[in-house]
Write a protein that binds this DNA or RNA. Structure first.
Lengths: 242, 242
DNA sequence: TCAAAAGTGTTTGACCTACACCCATGG
DNA sequence: CCATGGGTGTAGGTCAAACACTTTTGA
């Protein structure tokens, strides 16, 4: 009875919804894990072990598990954690893809997110030294996706790059790609890699100082090279408008 | 057999997916229909006739019908057509909402789109003079949403306003809110309404001319008022970069 | 003393904004 | 003539790019 009423309510919600034909699509949440290493913008792809697109590279993700009772963003964060063991990472919704033919098996609606993670050697280890027989690899997002990438993932990565380039200039996403403490050179490198062009250091630093609350951390020597060691910086709370 | 294999493939796609617990969420596509009339930015809401949120205002939408074999954007455009009889309208994906508790009945993932429609009196008529007992109303997006709006639709409309304001300055969405032929005053009014502030006409026109290919259409007198009649404009193909 | 990090100063040009002012056009 | 549509010109300010130069710091 309760259920029947619900069915009726559902039916009325839509314009021309036929309860007899009603089938639900599968819903997956995919996570584009981005980082910057070696002066290039990388994304983590996984090699598929089963058809369709067997042995093709694909964006990691999984079906939405209703039992976990999590939000979509939490699902994305959980998948990120499962792949990288990282937590407290910047995650943002990218777009949702649901073309009828995008998965040859069945109708799949995929909500994609992207995560910006600071590169660490631990990350490299945790991803490469897995024992679950999954093959992972970091791909350069600017060098073009691997040929034969699965599903419509080439389009997704294109949308991702556009989003990153577009948001970089007016939002603090660059800091999410760096550890808490970073140097001016590292920060500038993030901008240069995403924008794909060199920047002039003094102008860059003036601009960043005007937009964000950059504070100096403890000075700390990092490398065994000559010259002045760089200052560590941290991003403070947002600049107060006065 | 074919089906069994598919199940296995599906299972492997995910990290910790349990086929026995596997339930699919419902997927709906909602459409925020925006227009500008009477110097204000309006959105079309529908009054719900059944619980939950009976008699509350809500964004129109419907469940994704797999039998129609349409893309998500086509589904949004179809719903727009069903509500307004309009076709060839600018439609863009806004965001996807899927919190577990957003619909008290069952798990619902909603992909929201927004449509920008030029106001016409025909639109007013087609929406208001419906015979399907649905109650529609245009709400001013800047005046705050109606109290007790259904589900998480208040948040959706907030995201929508942010998107419109943000995109206005670098994309030609304003033209989608006007008929093919429009005047400088009308175009400026669209910008002023969305931005929420007055603009200086000469500067506005110089700027728009620099960004878009504005062409004059046939001069045509419109009103029975004194003064020079306004020139009709059309948006030409994008400016060639040279 | 050297090399790298970090900052200062300045010039140039683009562009935005406000405002004054002029021209065009039809009632 | 007048009211409105539409444009030109310009002065002031902001901002960004480019580049030269200085200062700081530790090996």
């Amino acid at each position: 009875m309760r259920k029947a009423k619900t069915e009726e309510e559902l039916k009325d919600d839509l314009s021309n919804y036929n309860a007899d034909q009603y089938k639900k699509p599968s819903v997956t949440v995919d996570i584009c894990i981005c980082t910057i290493v070696d002066k290039s913008l990388k994304i983590l792809l996984i090699k598929r072990k089963f058809p369709p697109f067997r042995d093709c590279w694909a964006i990691p993700g999984g079906f939405l598990d209703l039992n976990l009772n999590e939000t979509l963003e939490e699902a994305a964060a959980r998948e990120l954690r499962e792949e990288t063991s990282l937590e407290n990472i910047y995650v943002e919704q990218l777009k949702t893809y649901g073309d009828p033919e995008r998965d040859p098996r069945t109708r799949v609606v995929t909500v994609t997110y992207f995560a910006l993670v600071p590169w660490t050697d631990a990350l490299k280890t945790s991803v490469e030294a897995r024992d679950d027989a999954k093959e992972y690899r970091w791909f350069d997002l600017r060098y073009g996706v691997p040929p034969g990438i699965a599903f419509d993932h080439a389009k997704i990565l294109g949308d991702l790059l556009n989003r990153l380039v577009g948001k970089l200039s007016y939002s603090p996403i660059a800091f999410s790609l760096l550890p808490k403490k970073f140097t001016w050179t590292e920060l500038q490198s993030v901008y240069e890699v995403i924008l794909g062009r060199k920047l002039v250091a003094p102008n860059f630093r003036r601009k960043i100082k005007g937009m964000y609350n950059i504070k100096e951390s403890a000075n700390f020597q990092r490398a065994l090279k000559p010259g002045r060691p760089s200052t560590y910086l941290v991003l403070g709370k947002k600049k107060e408008a006065y």
